[in-house]
Design a protein around this nucleic acid. Structure first.
Lengths: 208, 208
DNA sequence: TTAAATAGTGAATATTCGTTCATAAAATGA
DNA sequence: TCATTTTATGAACGAATATTCACTATTTAA
């Protein structure tokens, strides 16, 4: 086991402060319009200091995304691996996600812009790594949905399509919440998502 | 009626060529990583010439988005205003959209990145205008869905939520298609979207 | 034919950052 | 205390690029 001294702990604290400052500034103005000196100012460090902790602007940015993505992925995967019914797990994952998003509004402003950016996925090593993580998540979800199909809980459809549809609904409502000027609890939409995804919007006659 | 001479027609043709070149380059590398001289080169004009047609890089970019958005909006709205059943109209709109997207792949790479960018919506006059158009479309869709609710075709839910859910599913599958390395006809997914949106994914016992 | 107007050009300009580095300040420990 | 190591700093450097403008080529119309 590693013994970490005060020195090291302090270093990590500073790193964390820089990351938090970066999160805030990037969330407001996007990658390209954010300058290193703005981040430095927000973090109350000199510009040069940032480079003692991160090799470049890009590395700072991707580290930020990478660490938070890792965190939410761990949470969600844990729930997806439970032994309960598929429907139950989906419901819980939605609640988890919405809670996490609500607690990390700034971060998700960044995340949502990143999701639909092609510019790096090709070029950059870091960019590829992030993209991998997003893909992994979808595939994990699809596997669970397939389990639902096999068990007869869900209709026989292509699980990847279902997974995309579900995350699509989530993203769309969550995006709306992000830009809404009068914020309401996002969690209040979790049930709507679940309901539409499972049972659709068409009115049907029920027979007892 | 305006009589347009050869001169004017030629000018418009050049403008169009510049827009087409810009579309291509922006789609590949995004707004910030595209340079005016790349666009000029692609369009086979000098750098300075671009400024004879567009006031700035931003104006060029937004004009591009604005004009195509207008086009798809016209198409879709026409269908949404038909007198057929709501379900019928939704189905047709999905087909229209998917066809249009398939024909304008480059443009939609740009569009999809723009959808989730906050950076301008606040700052810029042009940016605001685009954002308005996106909102207008959603509201229009929601109005039709409300009609479906009132007529008893759809379940009684918040129409805006339904509209967001539907566009969410569309965007998600369409995005997947965009980044897919082995392109398949996007139109083949129209039915999946319609099916999930209307009837959901849950398997139910049917009774005759 | 020729003068005036228009369209096109790309090198030069000015600005904006990402990054570096010589120095200062602080911490360490002998 | 004083020498050494570590950490922080922000001015200065250099690359990138949006925009301008003095100039050329082309078209117009008198």
């Amino acid at each position: 086991m590693e013994k970490v001294g005060r020195k090291e702990r302090e270093r990590q604290a500073h790193r964390g402060e820089i990351l938090r400052a970066a999160e805030k500034v990037f969330a407001g103005k996007g990658f390209f319009q954010t300058t290193m000196s703005e981040i430095a100012h927000e973090a109350e460090f000199g510009t040069g200091t940032l480079y003692k902790y991160f090799k470049s602007k890009e590395e700072l940015y991707f580290t930020l995304i990478d660490e938070k993505t890792e965190e939410i992925n761990r949470l969600v995967n844990a729930e997806l691996c439970r032994g309960t019914s598929v429907k139950e797990r989906i419901k819980n994952v939605l609640n988890l996600e919405f809670q996490f998003i609500e607690k990390n509004r700034d971060f998700f402003r960044i995340y949502v812009s990143e999701r639909s950016r092609f510019e790096w996925t090709v070029k950059d090593e870091l960019g590829k790594k992030i993209h991998e993580k997003m893909v992994t998540y979808i595939r994990h979800l699809a596997r669970v949905l397939k389990e639902g199909v096999d068990r007869g809980e869900l209709k026989p459809m292509e699980p990847l399509d279902m997974a995309h549809a579900l995350t699509g609904i989530v993203n769309s409502l969550f995006f709306e919440w992000l830009i809404s000027p009068h914020p309401y609890p996002l969690i209040s939409k979790a049930n709507t998502v679940f309901e539409i995804f499972l049972r659709g919007t068409e009115k049907m006659e029920r027979r007892k």
